[in-house]
Every structure is written in C-alpha cells, then in structure tokens.
Design a protein around this nucleic acid. Structure first.
Lengths: 148, 148
DNA sequence: TATTGTTATACTCTATAACTATA
DNA sequence: TATAGTTATAGAGTATAACAATA
C-alpha cells in the first residue's frame, strides 16, 4: 500500500530509535559546539571526572570505544587543557587520567547546555515518561549485549 | 564520586538512546547480512516497495539521506537485481523505482529476519511497552525536528 | 531559474593489525 | 606471554560543491 511516507518502517523499534537518535545527536552537537566538545568528548570527560586516575583502556571499555580510537580523543582533551595524562607509578605502561580545574569548569558549562538540550528534547514527557523510556532503552541494550 | 561505571551518563536520555541504538544496529546488521542487506538498504527497499514508482529524491527526503549518498545505495540495489530504475515519461530528469520479483522475495526473507531480530531486542517488553516506547521516541524526534 | 540525478571530494566514526614498552 | 598505549590504515556513513540534462 502506497503512503508516500515511512509507515512501513515505523512499526520497527529499531527505526524509531535511529530517527530519534539522529535528531537528538544533531541537537546535542550543536549545543556542545560553543563548549568545544562533541558527544564523545563530553562522555569521556564525564567518565574521567567521575573516576579520577582512570586509565584510557578502562574509559574505552566503559564507553565501548576501541583503544586506538580512544588515543585521539584523549589527545584532543589533553591538548585543550581539560585533562592531564600522567604515568602510573604502579604500572609504568599505563596513564592516569585526571580533569584539570579548567576541565572541571568546562564540564560544568557543558552540563548546563546538555541539561537544556535534554529538557528541549524531552519536552512533553513527564518525569515518569523519562524514567520509563530510560528503563525500556536499557532493557533493549541488555538484550543486544546478551548476544555479543 | 567514583563508581568505575557510566552512572554519570545514564541520567541522560541521549546516552541511553545511543547505547540502545548501537546494540540494536549491531544485531540488525548481523541478521540482515545473509540477505545481502544493511540497515539502510533494507530501509530503502521497504520504501520503494511501499511506494512503487517513487523517485530517488523522494526516498532520500523520507529517510533523510543526502541525494549524492542515495545514488550509491540505489546502484547497489539495482546491481543486486532487487529494484529497477526507469526514466519517468512525465519528467525525463527523474527515475521511477520499482521492486523486482526477486526484490520482493528478498524483502520477504529480510522482513522475517528483522521480525526475529525485533522480538529478540524487545524481549521482556509487553506489546504495550513497545507502543509506549515507539510513541516516546517519536515525540523526541519531533522535538528535535522542530529545531531544524 | 529550479530540479533530478550525478561526480568528486572530504570529514567523521569505527574497526583491525602490528608495533613499543612494560608487566 | 600478556597488557597499555600507540601507529597506520581501511571501511563505513555523512556532508557540500559543482556539473549535465531537463523542467
């Protein structure tokens, strides 16, 4: 049946997730741009700030990023003066990552922008709706990871 | 507060959507591989089958794909013998796209695989849960598109 | 002039193999 | 031998500019 629309695909949860994610990512990157961050650098900065001294490989594991790709992300954050990379005393192969004061300030600014972005993207959703949504999304993720 | 996890990011709907989407896409592409399709070619084939004679630019608009990128996707589907590309009589600039019998057979097989994939990914979700999820995702998408 | 499809191109994201230095 | 970080590289996916044919 011809509809001229994407009705055939709207039955799929996967399609709806992709469309929502694309719209959301566009808005997020726009709102992070003034802070000099992207979705991935914002995520990494958050993880480092929440886990002082964490290693690159641990960040990579948490965010499911390949280690080679993590290197350039860490480079970018270090060169921007947002994090420090210091050799571990206990394991001289590894680096310990910390947010700088500048990084903490930047993170605070970025979090404010992201909070506004989240409010904008979840307009019309109640707090209960948001909880339900996050819960259902995490169930889907868990169903997928069970297959890895 | 150090948790060693991604708790700081789990408060964001955007992060949960990204994680769910990544898990879902991995599973989908694996399940579409035997049918010789990817997420995007499956989507395009569905749109063409649902809208016989549709133009490339219309498919691109529906799926939010740039026209130059659509060309190679249409090439791929045509070379696989799944669709035909015929000059429009009414507008000699445009092509009219149709699924071939082979394309319809392939689509049927792929839809069965994708249905299994969707069941797998939404395991533990009731029919009502799925409706709620799709509804909330479409609201988020609409909130984003309002900003374009 | 504007539009359809195209080519060329470039930039991001992602994934793998192989190296080094340490363990 | 295994691991942390790195380099090089290749494949997707995505985005823009400019062109030919047609409207």
């Amino acid at each position: 049946m011809s509809t001229g629309k994407d009705t055939v695909l709207r039955i799929y949860t996967g399609y709806n997730i992709k469309r929502a994610f694309n719209a959301l990512q566009l808005d997020l990157n726009t709102c992070l741009f003034p802070a000099g961050l992207r979705m991935v650098t914002f995520s990494v900065l958050n993880i480092i700030d929440d886990n002082p001294g964490i290693r690159q490989s641990a960040v990579a594991k948490i965010l499911v990023i390949e280690r080679p790709n993590m290197v350039v992300i860490i480079d970018e954050l270090e060169q921007a003066g947002l994090i420090t990379r210091e050799r571990s005393e206990k394991d001289r192969r590894a680096y310990e990552l910390h947010t700088t004061p500048h990084g903490k300030t930047r993170l605070k600014i970025a979090r404010t922008s992201v909070a506004e972005h989240e409010d904008r993207m979840t307009q019309g959703l109640s707090d209960q709706d948001k909880d339900i949504l996050n819960n259902l999304l995490q169930k889907i993720e868990a169903n997928g990871l069970g297959r890895t």
